[in-house]
Amino acid sequence: MAIDLDRCQGCRACVEACKIENNTPSAVFWMYVFRLEEGTYPDTSISFLPRPCQHCHNPPCVKVCPTGARFHRDDGIVLTDFDRCIGCRYCEVACPYGVNFFNWRKPEQAFADYQLKMDDPDLAAVTGGLIPPYRNPDLDELQGDEQRRTAGSAHYKGVVEKCTFCVQRVEKGLDPACVVTCPVEALVFGDLEDPNSPVSTYLRGRDQFKLLEELGTDPSVIYVGGTPPTPDAREIERPMTGVGNANA
């Protein structure tokens, strides 16, 4: 995936598309967009930085997973087997990008912040009580050659999840939800090894960087049109990111 920081408006449409496509509960941001600020008034600068899972070629999370629940597919996508994860959260501490999310709560609790009242009889009559009501059935399917439950599904309590590059869409030949929705087309998806793929074409001849390249993780998310965030960057406009902190 290529991300053009020169285009990104920081609108977080990708964040929202991801949440809806993958039915993630509140405070879970498989895709996240930093809104950053540096400098002192009036020499202030603002920048935006989308942060999906970096799907590293040398993923620290895969290396440390004790049960092989976190694995690296041949096509480069790093996935979690939700049936195998034991919830030790080692992947989460090993990942320098902070892309992992543990299901601290049961799904119905986790969606409670979204005020969806799944047990509401009037609503259940329409949705069959699904959690969430816009539940995507593709997530329940087993994915890929490995036929594993890797696409998010019910966000079981006690397992770790993260961005899957929308494996359920990629398997059908579609781009990830974040890429499709980006209003300014700042995200480009494709096979980096294929020189004719849209992403390779997009990257050709542009200055690039990868996040925390010095760690040797070799991410397959490549940023163009900007510079890596400096350690002085301060986050502004943070969403509500705690669990159970909605205005209930």
Binding site: A13, A17, L116, V126, T181
Partner: peptide, 24 residues
Amino acid sequence: RNRGTLCPKGQAQIASIYDPHRVK
């Protein structure tokens, strides 16, 4: 106007359809 894309509001309004706190 949107050339196949949507903004966060466009994406999220799906929740308003199923909002059980609507006036029913």
